[in-house]
């Protein structure tokens, strides 16, 4: 069902002659987890700020829950929770006080606030640290508190800017699982921005790749890799123990196989690009030939490769 909760139409933001965001159009559906992926300075944060009405677009419009964010930022901010990339707290106040202050500002009635703040702290796993000053909080705890900040307001949309920055790997995993859980349980729409590919791969339904202010591509990870790498979606590497005696002939024969697009041989191995996953056939072929296979590796294109490919292209563009 098409039900875009965030809709960007031709959004642009120029700082002088520098184009931070250029003609960006994007639709994000309700309940979706969308990853905005791009290197530093790609314009991710600028885009997010425009969605919240905190920055004025040079042209185009950002509709969040059907409301124009530039003209009516307060209404948008009532529905959207935003976690900035380097969030800060009032260090002289306890975590609970910090959270209650935000709760009050967002208009939660006074008599409900204490209970609600406590519940939210439990939810993000800070139940034991309620009365600690935020000055003494670690980076990961602050990140959780920032998430609590967002959840206490019961938003329809969560926008997280680099939420995993500065947390240790175990913490990141926990954090992402938490976000995914919350999104699934409460039907929240989540927009994440990051330059960490693997994390996005773990959690996002769809990703958009954002480079130099332009959305180069969007879709789920399978489509993305399909689009980018065309037919060579699967790469199979086979390593053998003895040097290949008749490499040329082997290459010829391999290329005859169905679904194989390209075969390249080296002294101790073969690399095959295939349009389908035919690893078992390849192994059988090698065994038949009496070659001593020591390893078979199937390379799937993850975001890493997608990303890499983009930067290569980008670098080429620059050189030209």
């Amino acid at each position: 069902m098409e039900n875009p909760i965030i809709q960007l139409n031709g959004l642009s933001k120029h700082y002088g002659s520098k184009k931070a965001v250029e003609n960006l159009s994007l639709k994000i559906n309700k309940g979706e987890i969308f990853g905005l992926l791009g290197p530093n300075g790609a314009g991710k944060t600028t885009t997010i700020l425009m969605m919240l009405g905190l920055s004025e677009p040079t042209s185009g419009e950002a509709l969040v829950c059907g409301i124009n964010a530039t003209n009516n930022p307060i209404a948008v901010k009532r529905k959207v929770g935003y976690m900035p990339d380097n969030v800060g707290f009032y260090d002289n106040m306890t975590a609970l006080e910090n959270l209650m202050y935000i709760g009050r500002l967002s208009g939660i009635p006074e008599e409900k606030i204490a209970v609600k703040a406590r519940e939210t702290m439990e939810l993000v796993g800070l139940g034991d640290e309620l009365y600690k000053k935020t000055g003494a909080y670690s980076r990961g705890m602050k990140q959780r508190l920032a998430l609590a900040d967002l959840l206490i307001r019961e938003p329809e949309v969560m926008i997280l800017d680099e939420p995993t920055l500065g947390i240790d790997p175990a913490g990141i995993k926990e954090f992402l699982v938490l976000i995914r859980q919350l999104s699934r349980q409460q039907g929240l729409t989540v927009l994440l921005s990051s330059h960490h590919l693997h994390q996005m791969q773990q959690i996002c339904d769809r990703v958009g790749i954002f480079v130099e202010g332009q959305l180069l591509m969007e879709g789920n990870i399978d489509t993305l890799s399909g689009n980018l790498f065309g037919k060579e979606s699967y790469v199979i590497q086979v390593t053998v123990r003895e040097p290949l005696a008749n490499a040329q002939a082997l290459q010829q024969e391999l290329q005859q196989l169905e679904h194989v697009n390209k075969a390249a041989t080296s002294e101790y191995g073969v690399e095959l690009s295939c349009s389908q996953d035919i690893t078992p056939d390849i192994v059988r072929f090698f065994v038949h030939k009496g070659l001593n296979v020591t390893g078979v590796q199937k390379k799937e294109y993850g975001l890493d490769e997608i990303y890499q490919r983009f930067f290569e292209n980008n670098a080429k563009k620059h050189v030209q």
Partner: peptide, 14 residues
């Protein structure tokens, strides 16, 4: 500088 300004501005306040 403390990063609290953006946190406040993300709330529904003018």
């Amino acid at each position: 500088n403390n990063g609290t300004l953006i946190r406040l501005m993300a709330q529904p306040v003018y």
